[in-house]
Amino acid sequence: MTNYTLEEKDSFTVLGIGTELKSHYTDYAGIIKEKSDFWTAVKQDGRLDSLKALATNDYIFVVNEAVNNKMMHYAGVMTEQTLPEADRVIQFPKGEYLVVKGEAKNAEELSNMLTGIAFGQVLPEAKDFAYVGGPNASVEMGERNGVLFGEMWIPVVRK
């Protein structure tokens, strides 16, 4: 099994700008294209920069959350502030989180890789903990030697 840790985290808030993913949840190519198109748009139109200006740290959150039976995808930052163009204040609960670390050459590759490892390898093989819903996020934490590094944070409960 790939390297992962379980970490206790305090509750935190992410301010997000989002989109509804319309592809079927098993249509990975469709979902990846929708996410890619969304990120291209929020970078080009300045919404991501507006969020980053309010951030309490340098982390960029790529959040997935089911809201009212819709698959939602958000670009977000940790902040207590708000923006008119923001779609949602996302509350992450205090508790135990599955944390998968990784690095990649760009943000899209990092998010897709961390999501694939967490949901495709770690969670299906986990015997003593489970994901039972709620927001989850891949977190871009910084860059070193030209490589982006980050983590996937998924709230879990003990079985």
Rank of each mutant, 00 (worst) to 15 (best):
V14R: 05
R158N: 15
R47H: 14
E125S: 12
G120L: 01
K33S: 02
N112E: 06
V122G: 03
K35T: 09
L6E: 02
K22R: 09
M72G: 07
E109R: 08
V157I: 12
M141E: 15
I32E: 12
P135T: 11
R47T: 10
M71V: 08
E85A: 14
D27R: 09
K127M: 07
L6Y: 00
F61A: 06
T40R: 15
Q81T: 00
T26V: 06
T2S: 13
V63M: 04
F149R: 07
A53K: 13
A86Y: 08
A75Y: 04
N112A: 13
V42A: 05
E140F: 12
H24A: 14
M1I: 10
E80R: 01
R47D: 12
Y97V: 05
N57F: 12
Y59G: 04
N64Y: 09
V89N: 10
A130Q: 11
R158K: 14
K159A: 10
D27C: 11
N69V: 09
E20A: 10
N3D: 14
V100T: 01
K101I: 08
D27K: 12
T13I: 06
L21A: 02
I17P: 02
E103T: 04
W153G: 02
S111T: 07
A118R: 07
L114V: 08
L114W: 10
L98G: 01
G142V: 13
E7H: 14
N69Y: 15
V132P: 01
I60D: 11
E7K: 15
M141F: 05
S50A: 09
W153I: 03
T115F: 13
D128P: 00
A126R: 13
T40D: 15
F92K: 04
A29V: 12
N64S: 15
